[in-house]
């Protein structure tokens, strides 16, 4: 049977790979969190149980087919149609094995879902189709930056539909549901980058709802956080504006490539004369953009609904300036 050879071969490969690679074996990605090795141990136990029973079933099947294959003139041999002792045995042994897996799986799950008391907290927001990570100092980033070797607790919610937050290297996953908070935690074991996916189908951009975990060396995280909180001062205004465009929600309604959306595209908008609702027109300059951010309903471009919320009190003057500088560059 091809299935037998295939699985057998895969298992040997997997054993071999596990021996040389550090946790990165045939099935599982490299372990990046303190919880991962515990999960992997159960995984490999179940794998061993599965391979054993698979070989047992397929082996017996192949043996019976070879030995008792129909031959002309040879009748089946007599054998009992039931055997209570045998049937009790092959009921009891699987029950015992699954109970072991069940208890083990639940205990590790409990550890994984109970964050230590001194965890560092980061707020995660899922939206179509990106992740935003908010830090205690007000910094918002599109990637998850964390310190190495310190428990991190994520408080997650969604702005639209259900998303799924998944870091394979940490063996961590949880749905991110609108209208409620999901909490998970992890402790990264070494500096480096890890992939984040969305695992709950959420529409057109579902498979591109990606982000990275960036695990910083001791001391590196604090430095990154201070710089990130200060990016308006550190970056050229147009570059800072581009970042604000992505993390403050502009991108959801204003495209950069001319595509139609809830609001007008930013492509080539600078210096253009826009027709307004009601017949008047306006030149897109610094003052018009500033007014539209603070009082979006004042002058609505024809063909669009007045649905944009005000950003009064939510963006500083310096941030508005940066956004204006960025818009000038979108040609």
């Amino acid at each position: 049977m091809p299935g037998l050879n295939l699985l057998h071969l895969l298992y040997l490969l997997q054993l071999g790979a596990a021996a040389i690679a550090d946790g990165d074996d045939f099935f599982m990605p490299a372990a990046g969190s303190t919880s991962a090795p515990g999960v992997d141990r159960i995984f490999h136990f179940i794998l061993a149980v599965s391979v054993f029973f698979f070989l047992l079933i397929v082996g017996l099947m192949a043996l019976f087919v070879a030995k008792y294959r129909r031959r002309p003139g040879v009748a089946p041999l007599p054998s009992p149609t039931h055997n209570t002792a045998l049937e009790v045995t092959w009921t009891a042994i699987p029950i015992a094995i699954v109970l072991v897996i069940f208890v083990w799986g639940f205990r590790v799950f409990l550890d994984m879902s109970t964050p230590p008391a001194n965890s560092y907290e980061i707020i995660v927001t899922g939206q179509k189709w990106k992740w935003l990570f908010s830090y205690p100092n007000g910094t918002v980033d599109e990637n998850l930056h964390v310190p190495v070797d310190r428990p991190v607790r994520l408080v997650m919610t969604s702005e639209d539909v259900i998303h799924g937050f998944f870091i394979p290297d940490f063996r961590l996953k949880h749905d991110v549901v609108p209208g409620r908070y999901s909490k998970v935690w992890f402790r990264a074991v070494k500096a480096g980058e890890h992939q984040i996916y969305c695992t709950q189908y959420c529409g057109t951009g579902h498979s591109e709802m990606l982000a990275k975990v960036v695990v910083h060396e001791p001391g590196g995280f604090e430095k990154w956080l201070a710089d990130a909180g200060n990016f308006l001062k550190k970056m050229p205004p147009a570059q800072a504006g581009e970042k604000l465009y992505r993390i403050r929600g502009c991108a959801q309604c204003h495209s950069l490539d001319g595509a139609g959306s809830t609001g007008p595209t930013f492509k080539g908008v600078w210096g253009r004369k826009e027709a307004l609702k009601g017949g008047a027109s306006v030149l897109v300059d610094e003052n018009y953009v500033r007014e539209s951010i603070l009082e979006p309903q004042a002058k609505v471009v024809a063909g669009f609904e007045p649905v944009m919320p005000t950003y009064k009190g939510r963006l500083t003057d310096q941030e508005i300036t940066a956004l204006i500088e960025f818009m000038k560059t979108v040609k």
């Binding site: 515990g38 590790v108 799950f109």
Partner: peptide
């Protein structure tokens, strides 16, 4: 998939 800790992954 039945084992909780592994199911999460």
């Amino acid at each position: 998939l039945g084992a909780l800790a592994v199911n999460v992954h």
